[in-house]
Design a protein around this nucleic acid. Sequence first.
RNA 1: GGCUGAGUGGCAGAGUGGCUAUGCAGCGGACUGCAAAUCCGUGUACCUCGGUUCGACUCCGGGCUCAGCCUCCA
Length: 518
Amino acid sequence: MLKIHNNLTKRKEPFVPIDPKNVRMYVCGMTVYDLCHLGHARVLVVFDVVYRYLRRVYGTEHVTYVRNVTDIDDKIIARANERGEKIDQLTNHFIEEMTRDADALGVLHPDEEPRATRHMGEIIDMIQALIDKGYAYQAGKGDREGPLGDKVNGPGGDREGPLGDKVNGPGGDREGPLGDVYYDVSRFEHYGQLSGKNTDDLRVGARVEVDTAKQDPLDFVLWKAAKPGEPYWESPWGRGRPGWHIECSAMATCCLGNHFDIHGGGLDLQFPHHENEIAQSEAATGEKFVNVWMHNGFVRIDEEKMSKSLGNFFTIREVLEKYDPEVVRFFILNSHYRSPLNYSDKHLDEAKAALTTLYNALRGVTPVEGGDVQAYAARFEAAMDDDFNTPEAIAVLFELAREINRLRGSDAQAAGRLAAELVRLGGCLGLLQRDPEDFFKGRRPTEIQADYASRTTTTHNAEVASGFSEAKIEILIEARTEARKNKDWAESDRIRDELLAQGVVLEDGPQKTTWRQE
RNA sequence: GGCUGAGUGGCAGAGUGGCUAUGCAGCGGACUGCAAAUCCGUGUACCUCGGUUCGACUCCGGGCUCAGCCUCCA
């Protein structure tokens, strides 16, 4: 029985899907104005594993995973201006880069990847519903109950056009917060449940914002009026764009229904983003929004949160120049998803050594299907059932590996059966799916390797250039084998050292010598 | 200040009211021309002070330390 830690109740609870034939999960994805960093990698990988495991439990066809893309917001506008690009030129570019990183990390594609700009209709409808039900008000209209219907006929207009074309359009006449629409937090009774805050405490600590028409510092913006030169969509409240929180409410309910099973994201989204999503969605639909809230912990550097604002982040791209993507994936999954994850080269090196051990067990063993290997699977599943305890699941993988190594000399069949199981269980985590030789020889999945090679920095290319080609390595190994036959140990060791200097480690097996890239 | 979460062996990282996590590193042995890989053996870890208990690293309370949220952030 799968149990999940539900952040709404702060407890581990049995997971009971609303509809086992269609388990539904929404995860807050990226705001696409820059390359993804390791924090994004963690969300990507963690929820990929959740997705994989749900598919395993409920069947591949019975899980719907939605991960959105935020493709309009202040930072995107700012970045596009900096780069002199149109908004969708910028966002399309970084969506491509994000997909490339996700693919490299072995992340399955979600069933849907909705983009905010493609869901303006739903967003506007939801804001209207909130206004109609008295949960939202328009700035500048003192009477929050006031009829806003005078402009409701607007949204049909021409909002579907590519926004980039409109940046310099005639939108400039609207200024300031007059067209802003805010959510009235005081109207939502359960505000603060998810983040464990109460509105009184929040008000005490609230910062006073200047230049805002909020009636309460806790209120947040649903619709932001466009300033001159900003991109906009037509709405009943004038030209503008959606606030950040409303897009997720709209896309989630649009793709998965008003009430669905799991909502995930980084811990930093718990407040205010997810709290606001609940307030919006439940007020608008009158139904419970989400049963289970899951948040993954932060990636840290030197015991400090990795974040854009602190500037202490590594992009996925940078890390993949030094480490195999599967090593990065292993590193992420080797600690529990709710724990902090400290990044350092040393830890990545250890992850590499550990993954090497696993692939070593697979090397030279032919997987054989069948056999009694239930004990390992049972323990693996028990670990995963316990709130996706991947470190414990990985421990089972190592025990399997040791057993394979014990048996490989005496009972190849039995070893093969265990190897098949190791590969199968590894697959639940998106690990160990490559030919071991490819892993040892530093071959990345072809497409990605070619792609990275063409994009990586000169230092990286220089390193690669200094290494020996596989053909040259094979030739040297042959020469060494010849020397060993003649018991010319000096020559044999010289060749081994020469290869070692290039990061190639030799292993003399009973039949032949194999090698791996260090 | 308010609210979370965390403190485990050299390092990383699970877990449990009494019984081996696991990995990396180290040490001893086997194997090897020597290595590497692998196997076998090996480490009386659980922040601190009280309490509950036959028994607590594990439950409760105080303290100390760290991280996070309360502002954009995965």
